[in-house]
Amino acid sequence: MTDLNCPNCGDRIDPMIAGRRHVVCPSCGTSLLIEDEAVREAGQAGVMHDVPTLFRLGDTAIVAGDRFRILGHARFSYGRGWWDEFQAVDAEGLSGWISVDEGDVAIQAPIPLDHAPRGTVPPALGAQFNVGGERYHVNEADEATCMALRGGFDEDLAVGETYRFVNAVSATGRLLSGEFWPGGRAWFVGRWVDPFDVTVERGA
């Protein structure tokens, strides 16, 4: 992997983070899109308040023997407060998301749209689907705004962007989440994790 430099301040970007598609320069905070090794500016990084968190960018979160390297940290708000979404990569190099909201931790991986619930609009509360042999029902539907970004992401995120999301749960505790924005949607499936079952290896 060749070295990449921020077009704004010229600083070197960590190769690990540079492997992702959307990166925030750690020096000047500019949001950058990486396309075929060319880097272009994409926006601002937003304000990330420093509060106690289970883990941070650069740490490795370990859950039941699975290791997740934390590469990106996005903060979304709805109303009076926020929650954090972390782009993580597992030992096999597969990308996923770890969502952390005051002790509610969920690890999810993207599912291809042909396996996901159909429909381009967010389903209503109580709606049910079958995904991967499990039955889910929607228990949460709301709107979120991206407040801040740090590190690298697979998706194209922008501070200030708003999208609608739904959370659906199954009887076995699995979590299905859908995100809807103008022109697109994405679905993720995973499980809730007890924060006490998460051990953290601090990064550099």
Partner: peptide, 28 residues
């Protein structure tokens, strides 16, 4: 702030800790 909400209950001179159970149960 990192581990969320829980309960400490005082009953009959005993203290017990209660937390949300995230794992699945069989039956559900």
């Amino acid at each position: 702030p990192t581990h969320g909400y829980a309960w400490l209950t005082w009953e009959d001179g005993h203290l017990v800790l209660t937390r949300k159970y995230r794992g699945g149960t069989e039956p559900g």
